[in-house]
């Protein structure tokens, strides 16, 4: 990563902390220019990623560490998220969303992440644990809306 994250948070692997992280993500995404639906999906994807770390990486222990780093991207405009943990490592090739024809509770998180984000890349972290990089870019409509509102704001 070429520059330092604009927001960097260390949080415990406690599901009670998901709500405040969602609020942060929603606010940041709004400031970047994401519309209501995209913000909802972006927030959902981050929530699912954190829940997967807590559930699978840390086996629901609530006192382990997760590092969340966020960047606003400028060209093209979007958001990059990097999540790191020290939990159980798995082969990234084995991380797959379940078949949606298989109707059963659970197993949806990876599917939601992949469907929502422009990029989702799991890696084994040097020294143990996993690193997940997520990128979401503004849609063409959101780019148009964003540039219109910027030009209106800069008018004398």
């Amino acid at each position: 990563m070429e520059r330092e994250p604009e927001i960097s948070i260390r949080l415990f692997s406690d599901p009670q902390l998901l709500a405040p992280v969602r609020a942060l993500m929603d606010t940041l995404a709004k400031s970047v220019g994401f519309g209501e639906k995209s913000r909802g999906l972006l927030t959902l994807a981050l929530d699912e990623a954190l829940a997967n770390v807590i559930r699978h990486g840390y086996k629901e222990r609530t006192d382990e560490m997760i590092w969340l780093n966020l960047w606003r991207l400028r060209d093209p405009v979007g958001i990059r998220i990097v999540l790191e943990d020290l939990g159980r490592s798995v082969d990234p090739a084995m991380i797959k969303g379940r078949e949606l024809d298989d109707v059963r509770p659970g197993g949806l998180g990876v599917h939601i992440i992949r469907e929502t984000m422009n990029e989702s890349r799991w890696e084994n972290r040097p020294g143990g644990g996993m690193r997940l990089t997520l990128t979401k870019l503004l849609s063409p409509e959101e780019r148009q809306d964003s540039s219109t509102s910027q030009s209106e704001n800069t008018r004398p």
Binding site: D47, A51, R104, P105, L108
Partner: peptide, 30 residues
């Protein structure tokens, strides 16, 4: 999130097995 959806899928499956009607109402946009 998917935990909530999974809870409702599980409940739906239970309802179907037990011949109960299971209806969702007032689903918000998000």
């Amino acid at each position: 999130d998917s935990s909530g959806i999974a809870t409702l899928v599980e409940a739906l499956q239970h309802a179907m097995r037990n011949k109960m009607k299971f209806v969702l109402v007032g689903i918000t946009p998000r």
